[in-house]
Design a protein around this nucleic acid. Sequence first.
DNA 1: CGATGTTACTATCATTTCGATAGGAAGTCA
DNA 2: TGACTTCCTATCGAAATGATAGTAACATCG
Lengths: 145, 145
Amino acid sequence: MNMKNLSDAFCPIARGLTCVGDAWSMLILRDASLGLTRFDEFRKSLGIAPTILTRRLATLTEEGLLEKRRYSERPPRDEYVLTTAGRDFLPVLVLLGAWGRKYRGEGRLTRYLDAETGEEIEPVAVDAVTGAKIGARPIRVATPE
Amino acid sequence: MNMKNLSDAFCPIARGLTCVGDAWSMLILRDASLGLTRFDEFRKSLGIAPTILTRRLATLTEEGLLEKRRYSERPPRDEYVLTTAGRDFLPVLVLLGAWGRKYRGEGRLTRYLDAETGEEIEPVAVDAVTGAKIGARPIRVATPE
DNA sequence: CGATGTTACTATCATTTCGATAGGAAGTCA
DNA sequence: TGACTTCCTATCGAAATGATAGTAACATCG
């Protein structure tokens, strides 16, 4: 899709999709959030073609969600680590996962636990102002200008 | 990307991406959440090619996020309305929008207001169990089996 | 020293998908 | 009858994807 128009749009959702608007990018961010950093780790985890992985990693790096870091001079080796923007994307993924669990949760599933309590995480989106679940109260859109 | 493998995966995020893993689908869901229902409304709002729109609407319908509903017999006219699963996807979009606002928020932006209070919504993802913001506490992954 | 292994890619190329444009089907309205 | 509306489908060139093979720059083992 033509991302140029989208990024010009006033809509912050469209803006977000401009950087991370495809499944591979989101899965790379998921894996990066779980601690993967290296090309081959991503490739094996995702079963992605190396051509595509190269492109996605480059885009995510350009967009400022990943950072390329040299971890060995000889031989020259780089790894990809999340930036703050990249780490901040995790809630989107977690919520997407919650949706997937609810509506596509047949069979066995990976679960996400609170590392301290060991209890399963139950992600919900709320409005920090009212405390209400997103979707519980009607939303009004204010277009600029 | 090959969605077959993904949907077999244990990961609920991957499962979610199998149904709604591209930008157009998410934007259609965004527009549907804002009340759009008709083919031409989506087409004009998104500037999407009709071929693509047809396919995306069909997929979202098959996946159970939209429902095709006849609103006129003569002439035969259908509209697309959100199912419960489709409505439940809104939090993901809202959170993606919050990310976009934070990291791609230059210039004017559409804002989302609480329809009752008129105040701008500040979406956050929290764990309903601990109440902590997602990302604030470390997460552990439990793979099935 | 040579062979093999590791890591991070690039090159190639067939297949798939996208997207712009035109047009059709089934009506309504004047 | 002719314009107009709405919801698409057909066509086709352009772009993206993905499978496979290969390369660069080393390390390590025998």
